[in-house]
């Protein structure tokens, strides 16, 4: 069964023009896709639909086998916990330490504190921030903040990981390191969608692309090639 299915999805904000037109695609479990396209093509809007931050104006979005139009508001948080999001601007809580930022999804899910201590400590060490667990985000570099944001997105072992321009604000070496981290997660079964402008990164990692131009999907990914 497909993890994500978009069928003729359209999106407009309020009474403005339509941002996305008849977008249809399917993501199989364990796949890795780059979402590419010029600025203003609708990448961020598509990601918003994927991480349930926005409802489509028309069409059908199916996630984890459920039609999102039929899911009640009460059941939405449980679905969102199966999706990890790395925001372009990181959206870290600046008053919380790196540890507490990463622990946030687990605390929201009501995970036992002992498990949180163990898992968050291990993950921050794995992403190379073992010595900066108690640092506030404002004291971290862009690359370190990116790793905290990525760690927060994956700590709950999401089935779908979405990253919006994860290499946009960091140097080349850190960008490649972040992509290797996402690749590693993908090898462990997480479905990954990465929105990027960075052609070099797309070339280097050679994953299929969802290419948006003017709100329309130009290149539909193979439905079978990326099956887990």
């Amino acid at each position: 069964m497909a993890l994500v299915t978009f069928s003729n999805v359209g999106l407009r904000y309020s009474t403005g023009p339509e941002i996305l037109h008849d977008v249809s695609f399917t993501l199989q479990p364990g796949s890795f896709h780059f979402l590419t396209g010029p600025s203003g093509a609708g990448k961020t809007s598509l990601l918003k639909l994927l991480h349930l931050g926005q409802k489509p104006t028309r069409g059908i979005v199916t996630l984890f086998g459920q039609d999102m139009a039929r899911v009640s508001r009460r059941d939405m948080p449980a679905l969102r916990r199966q999706i990890g999001v790395v925001f372009q601007d990181f959206r870290l809580m600046n008053h919380l330490s790196a540890f507490d930022n990463v622990a946030l999804p687990l605390r929201i899910a009501g995970t036992d504190e002992a498990v949180i201590q163990k898992n968050v400590g291990e993950l921050l060490t794995w992403v190379g921030l073992g010595d900066k667990m108690h640092a506030r985000p404002v004291t971290l570099s862009g690359g370190e903040q990116q790793r905290v944001a990525t760690a927060r997105a994956v700590i709950g072992r999401p089935r779908l990981l979405i990253a919006d321009e994860p290499t946009g604000n960091i140097d080349r070496d850190t960008a490649i390191r972040i992509l290797h981290l996402l690749d590693e997660l993908n090898r462990h079964g997480t479905t990954v969608v990465v929105a990027t402008h960075d052609e070099a990164i797309v070339e280097r990692f050679r994953h299929p692309q969802l290419r948006l131009e003017g709100g329309t999907l130009k290149e539909e990914p193979s439905l079978t090639a990326q099956a887990a």
């Binding site: 991480h51 508001r73 449980a78 916990r81 809580m93 999804p105 929201i108 709950g156």
Partner: peptide, 11 residues
């Protein structure tokens, strides 16, 4: 952000 990472309205 809390909403998008799965916090319920009640939380």
């Amino acid at each position: 952000t809390l909403h998008l990472i799965g916090a319920s309205d009640e939380y």
